[in-house]
Design a protein around this nucleic acid. Sequence first.
RNA 1: UGGGGCGUAGCCAAGCGGCAAGGCAACGGGUUUUGGUCCCGUGAUCGCAGGUUCGAAUCCUGCCGCCCCAGCCA
Length: 563
Amino acid sequence: MSDAGTAVGEGGRDHIRDVIRDDVAAGRVGTVVTRFPPEPNGHLHIGHAKSICLNFGVAREFGGRCHLRFDDTNPVKEELEYIESIQRDVRWLGFDWGGHLHFASDNFEQLYDWAEHLIGAGKAYVDDLSADDIRAHRGTLTEPGRDSPYRDRTAEESLDLFRRMRAGEFADGARVLRARIDMASGNINMRDPVLYRILHAPHPRTGDDWCLYPTYDFAHGQSDAIEGVTHSLCTLEFADHRPLYDWLVENLPVPSRPRQYEFARLNLSYTVLSKRKLVQLVEDGHVGGWDDPRMPTLAGLRRRGIPPAAIRDFVRRIGLTRSDSMVEVGVLEHCARELLNKTALRRMAVLRPLKVVIENYPEGETENLQAVNNPEDASAGSREVPFSREIYIEREDFMEDPPRKFFRLAPGREVRLRYAYFLTCREAVRNDAGEVTGLRCTYDPASRGGKSPDGRKVKATLHWVSAAHAVAAEVRIYDQLFTRPDPGAGGDILGDLSPQSVDVLRECRLEPSLADAVPGEPVQFPSVHAHSPGGRRFRPWPALAAEPILAAGLAVLPDGGPG
RNA sequence: UGGGGCGUAGCCAAGCGGCAAGGCAACGGGUUUUGGUCCCGUGAUCGCAGGUUCGAAUCCUGCCGCCCCAGCCA
């Protein structure tokens, strides 16, 4: 275990680890080899984190290895940019593939040879039917399919055609290579699935070398076999493909015999994890980009200040099963809070400033007070915070006519200024419109540090910032992107977008030490009772986890859940 | 009416024939220089109905419900 939460790779007990344990115990596999196989057509999100933690975690637990393999078989959708970002995100999450960076495209030549092998064995044929005709022949869920008129053409003819497909003689969609399996199978994936299609498109890695590309089904299992993957772990929707996966691996002279096992994909409340929908959010400008703090992408979570160890802990907690489930975001938020509470530095920041003049504090004087960096961690030390006659406190920490349950400042009431002094409100200052523009207060010089010598108590502790020393900043408060736990379930995803999921506060005042904040290092603003843009009150913590581009005057507040 | 999966508390999830782990959430109470943290306390007879058994969430049968599959996407 390194930092709080789970160490990289720590796993539990589940149906997949049970199988692997048995395989190892029975001597069926020597070195356990897994792989995380993203298609480079989008950014990784929290759902992928589940698979990444599983694959890399299992490899580590069993002393094996995990490969990072890009399933780059569809050049029309894939881009180099994603190949880079995916590697960066996997590393950020805390995993390392060593020298095992692979690409399905590394195997294109071998896969092509195996396709010819299948043709030669009478187990695959070139079909001239159009995509529409193939669909029409496929049958339905309850009716068997019909043979293509080209299904029985000779191996020689298919081979000739297949070679000419590679040579570029035909247009996209003109012909495909199909496996000859069973058009009457109840499993539609076995009704002569397409193995190769013509695509005159440049590939991010192989350029113009090919004009026909293998489908996922033809590339995945064979790539596993080439790499020596022993346990090919994927989500439930591929369970239907397992018979095909097995059929191919059994009918081809592959160097090893991988096995596929499935687990349920992650569903998180109040967000969407489908690549198509995430792309839509980005492309239609509903968010600032893939790394918008409201996005469930790893890049977005990172900007929101959620540490990778919190994500690993989250994955460990939600378990691994074969049953569909919807995990509440609260679990993720809890993991982030728990870790951040132990590690984040505390700093004072006033989001909506209200000027306070301490009338009995000497004019022009400044003193430095000691403030603890993290009450949960003494080794984090302390810092000095300047204090003076004029300070800012949170506007909402004062109420002229407070209700029963309001414990903070009000006329005549005494509270504590964190790490400073006890403060008593004498009166509110108003402008012509009658709005409170400031407070006149007095302090108790004997309460320096926040302790009352006579033992009297106060019901609240306020955060504050010295007016003359404060750093001006913009703070953004983010809330959930969607208004319902199951976005889109009522029809349109866009209709469930929260009308205002971000609030930009431009008048914030931060304590001076924040000017030196390390970008990306989470910071907590104790006692900030942030409100979501929609008015919902966040828990008083955690307040900020920064992408602190504080240099640019920006800080980010992570979701806090309803308070 | 085809094939493949799944059904244990609000949400996850252990359990694999012997008297239903744990986590999150929620609700009480205590501590507290964060209305945070921390601490203590509070919840299920296991989709339904039969059957087998001394005994079943765990075995059998039949229902019911939910998810996935008809891309030349992955």
